[in-house]
Amino acid sequence: MNFIYDLHRTMMSQKLILVFQGDFTQESTKSILSMAERNLDSSGEESSIKRKVFNVMVEALQNIVKHSDELVDGQVRSHAAIFLIGKEANRYSIMTGNPIRKENVVKLKGALDRINGLDKDGLKDLYKEIIKNTTISDKGGAGLGFVDMARKSGEKLEFEFPEMNEEYCFFCLKVNVPRDNE
């Protein structure tokens, strides 16, 4: 059972304060949010930073709820997704990982690269352009989640797509919220 200790040590060394792997639904989203909120409250975090962390968490979690069921090959399904929060002296990191079909990687990477190429005003313009022209998708998204995460973070979105098998990559996303934002 050394893996328990290994996992514990990894969480400590990576400064993880919350890890959730399992079925991602609106209900689990609410539970995770309230757990994280309690954690931020009890640590006396500044309210503006708490709000930003909350904001990024909601978008990240709802992304997983909406997209992690892309897998249809039986056992993997939505259980394959993971959500993590890290807390370091100078920042919080909200991280997600979920399978994505390989044919969708190029489009997603393009959207993320576009967002990362924009400054504060550019992101604001993109947000307004999307909100004016978008309609809510079948999955309930407005196509604004990553733009909003980038705006609330104030930093570049970090992402990677390690290969899972011939059909899927694992979309890893890390969004940082600086703590010393003054």
Partner: peptide
Amino acid sequence: EYFNTASSKLIL
């Protein structure tokens, strides 16, 4: 107090 991006579209 807070709204997500999907709500922001509906608020508009």
